[in-house]
Computed example of a mutant assay.
Amino acid sequence: MLTLFTNRYQAFRPSQGVPVRITLGAPRFKLPYPLTCAVRELAPRREYFSKSLPEFTAAYRADLDQLGATWIAQRLRQIAEEQGDHRLVLLCFEDLSDPAQWCHRRIFASWWKDVTGDGVRELGPLGSPYEQGTLL
């Protein structure tokens, strides 16, 4: 069994599950919890950050398609088994309570729902574009 969530590093709480880094870089600020798991393959490439949201989304989703849901699920299940908890929380930096913000964790969640049928709930507060379902 595998249950996926998303959140930002600063809003994550250990009671939510296992924190999993999906960013190229680790937080440079002190976290109140250990961050020992990472799936760097789920981080977008550096060159994507200069792109518009539609271009970024298309490029990132193409990368996810290339990895494939089977490989991603195996990697995430491995972490869940090692950690003894089926609840994995995929973390990045963006504060989605700000309606102007968007991030790859919700693009991943949308892709995952499209290819597996399984939803990935955001645990942090969401701004209006996400509440309206445009990226869920």
Score class of each variant (00 low, 15 high):
L24N: 05
Q66Y: 12
Q10A: 12
R21N: 09
P34L: 03
P44G: 01
Y130G: 00
W71P: 02
W71D: 04
Y33S: 03
V89P: 05
L96C: 07
A58K: 05
H104S: 03
L67G: 04
L67D: 05
P32N: 11
E131H: 13
L24V: 10
S15R: 15
P129T: 11
P44C: 01
L123P: 03
T3L: 11
R77F: 09
L64C: 04
G127M: 01
Q16N: 08
L24M: 06
D98E: 10
I72C: 04
P129Y: 14
R21H: 07
G133L: 13
E81R: 15
P34C: 00
L31N: 05
T6D: 00
Y48D: 06
L96T: 10
K30Q: 12
P19N: 02
A43I: 01
R105L: 05
D65K: 14
L24I: 10
L76R: 02
E94R: 11
P44R: 00
L96W: 14
R77Y: 09
L24S: 04
L135E: 03
G127W: 01
Q78D: 13
R121A: 07
F56T: 04
V39Q: 01
K51V: 01
D98N: 14
G124V: 02
Q74T: 13
L123V: 03
C92E: 04
T57V: 11
F12C: 06
E47R: 15
A100Y: 15
R13S: 06
A69W: 15
T3G: 01
L88E: 08
F29L: 07
H104C: 05
F49R: 14
D118C: 08
S97N: 03
N7I: 03
Y33C: 02
T36S: 07
G119P: 06
D63W: 09
I107W: 04
E41R: 14
L136V: 11
Q83M: 12
I22E: 02
L42K: 10
A26V: 06
D63Q: 14
L53Y: 14
G25R: 15
T134K: 15
F12N: 09
P14H: 13
P34M: 01
Q101K: 11
G25M: 06
T23K: 06
P27M: 03
S97W: 09
Q101H: 11
L91V: 04
L135T: 01
E131M: 14
K30C: 06
R45V: 02
R13F: 04
A62R: 15
D63A: 09
I72D: 04
S110E: 10
L91I: 02
G133H: 14
G84F: 14
P129W: 14
S110I: 02
T3K: 14
E47Q: 12
P54Q: 10
G17E: 09
R77A: 07
L136H: 13
G84Y: 15
R87L: 08
E131A: 10
Q16E: 12
T134A: 08
L135I: 07
D118H: 14
A58M: 00
Y60K: 00
D114G: 03
L136M: 09
F29G: 01
T6M: 00
A26T: 11
C103T: 06
D114M: 07
V20Y: 02
Y60D: 00
E82P: 00
L91E: 02
R8I: 05
R40H: 13
L88W: 13
E81S: 09
E82K: 14
V39C: 00
L91F: 01
E55C: 05
R28V: 09
E131I: 15
A58I: 00
E47A: 08
